[in-house]
Amino acid sequence: MEMRMYFMLIRASIKSRLQYKFNFIFSMLMAMLLNVSEFLMIAFVLLKFNSIQGWSIYEVGYLYSVILLSKTLYRTFASDVHHLEKYLVSGDLDSFFIRPIPILLTLMSQNFFLLIGELLQGTFIILICIQHFHSIGQVDLWIIPITILIILAGSIILFSIGLATSTLGFWLTRVEMLQNLTEDAAMNAVRYPLSLYPNWLKGIFLTILPLGFINYLPALYILKQDVGIWIIGATIMVACLCLWLSLRFWKIGLSRYQSTGS
């Protein structure tokens, strides 16, 4: 029943978006351009120098597209979890308390927006990379289901980090700057091999903000065979643990909620 209402709210959200067709297409194209330029920035460096610490352009492309597709799933299905701050500042979260579905599901259904640009770009890059790995015999076709699995697990990890950061808003109200650190800066860092960073930073990406489990560690198994298949199981377990912890934290935060709006 709750999920039925959640999907009903999502349908309504999509319809409201499509009312403004020009805005919809324009914003989609612009988002795509933004992501392409971000990838080109590192691609140009790799085209000139061939590799970074033994990681080729295709391998870095794989790391990049796994994190991009995970982020796309997270932001598509939980866009306003990232924007909880505006509900806290305006007091609009009040109305969610009287709705017949859980507050988190209501929040997730707000401003549902399929990030087509990111989805197409991420899929395009990952397919080119996989095709290359396959053509040189680096991987078999089983890379496809494993990649889908780690993208799904990755989106759960990103969602959990996003939810935990937003939940801090129940105490701090303003969390945008913090999100810039825990989401934007962290996601930017894990687009590249973690071996580039000093141990303290690597440690952060494997513990407090476990984004290393989304692409780098699985890639060590899939592309380099440096670790065993157990790393895929570990990624799924980390995703489940992060989700459980973030939902617990969300419940605590919600119980502290005090409306700030007028």
Partner: peptide, 17 residues
Amino acid sequence: VASFIFGFVYVSIWIGI
């Protein structure tokens, strides 16, 4: 701090290259 991390990542990439 976030801006510092961004720059730190870019510096690390060039050190690696």
